[in-house]
Nucleic acid binder design. Structure first.
Lengths: 205, 205
DNA sequence: CAAAAAATCCCCTAAAAACAGGAGAAGAAC
DNA sequence: GTTCTTCTCCTGTTTTTAGGGGATTTTTTG
């Protein structure tokens, strides 16, 4: 039984690298690739792969969003996140969205094959270097936000004041103020500037 | 006359992609690759390539530094920068260091070959999409900041208040206030939140 | 050198955000 | 059926930013 493999990555060189490594493998059925989230979703309407290798950074949506969307529509698909060293903070959110594993972009052919094999057995595959770094980062990094907090964070980043947000969300300004306090506390920062910088860097906005 | 080609990139998939695309080309002599700046410099002590494809992001030094160092020691070598879409701001600095060209990581085989050919003729090769985006970035979105404004912007993003920045930069708080006003005006935004979001997205911070 | 740009400083007022501390209600989780 | 989380709201005070002016002194640059 061949594994139907699909890639979503905006870098042709990466796609070509994976293709060159895996195309000749007997257990891999190379379905193709997409450069962005839209093309990926469009492809999935006609074909259903077994495994999708998905870059965290895409030109239109973030891989995190795309992962959530894909798994909501096609729960049977296994998604393996792809990332570079300095983006490990995103991985845990990708796993939260239901991804089955992740690889670093410097993975060898053997490691990619192992990852695909592992997730096909309904187990999780975490690249060694990356899971080590995640362990290290676990404490400090990306906070867990509630629905409302995420919403408020987004609106702050759009430039709205507490009064404007209160009106938009049909709550009191003091409520917004509370959400802000919680955001500052969760990100462990003391003002909006750093909050928005971190939130932007961590792709919350 | 074959072109001796060397790659510096920390992502195995990218190296494999380029190798797979170019190895069979008769005019290319595939010398090999390095994962980081140190390995690259070490390799250059034994061999001198004609063209180096160099990633902007490396684990040890930045590609920009490495580019400067390599060209200082081996002025005859042609360096072509490699980058992704969201790192265009680094390219101009790479060109300042003497790079002969740059490519985006989604470049096709034909484009890579054209770039190599072009720089071997002692001309500069700039990828189309990227030079367009650089042009865009120059005019519309990214404002031109003065030295002091950049400095203040950075400190705001670090979370400092006007008083703290004034102390750090040995000026009055009202001066900082003025720089802030200019920043808001230049970015055409009404508060710090949007300022920092845009500045982060545009890689000012 | 003259003109433009950048950096510096000042006034004032109003608005917004941060800090502190508490508290009730609804729903989910155990 | 209690505990935890989330969302909601409150009263205050203090700090920080934003907005609107204006002005002087260095640097750059044509």
């Amino acid at each position: 039984m061949k594994t139907k493999l699909f890639i979503v990555d905006d870098h042709y060189m990466v796609i070509e690298g994976i293709r060159s490594m895996l195309e000749q493998e007997p257990q891999i059925d190379w379905l193709g690739y997409a450069y962005n989230a839209a093309a990926c979703l469009s492809y999935l309407r006609t074909q259903t792969p077994d495994v999708i290798l998905m870059d965290i950074n895409l030109p239109d949506t973030s891989g995190i969003e795309l992962c959530g969307e894909v798994l909501q529509r096609y729960p049977g698909v296994k998604v393996i996140g792809l990332s570079t060293f300095n983006q490990l903070s995103f991985i845990s959110r990708m796993l939260d969205k239901g991804a089955s594993g992740y690889l670093l972009k410097n993975a060898s052919k053997a490691e990619i094959l192992k990852a695909i094999e592992t997730v096909m057995q309904r187990r999780q595959y975490l690249s060694l270097e990356a899971s080590e770094m995640i362990k290290k980062n676990e404490t400090a990094d990306a906070p867990v936000l509630t629905r409302r907090e995420t919403e408020v964070l987004q609106l702050i980043a759009e430039g709205m004041t507490n009064a404007e947000m209160a009106e938009r969300l049909f709550v009191s300004t003091t409520t917004i103020d509370t959400h802000r306090k919680h955001l500052l506390a969760k990100f462990n920062v003391k003002n909006t500037a750093v909050l928005i910088r971190l939130a932007t860097q961590m792709k919350f906005v």
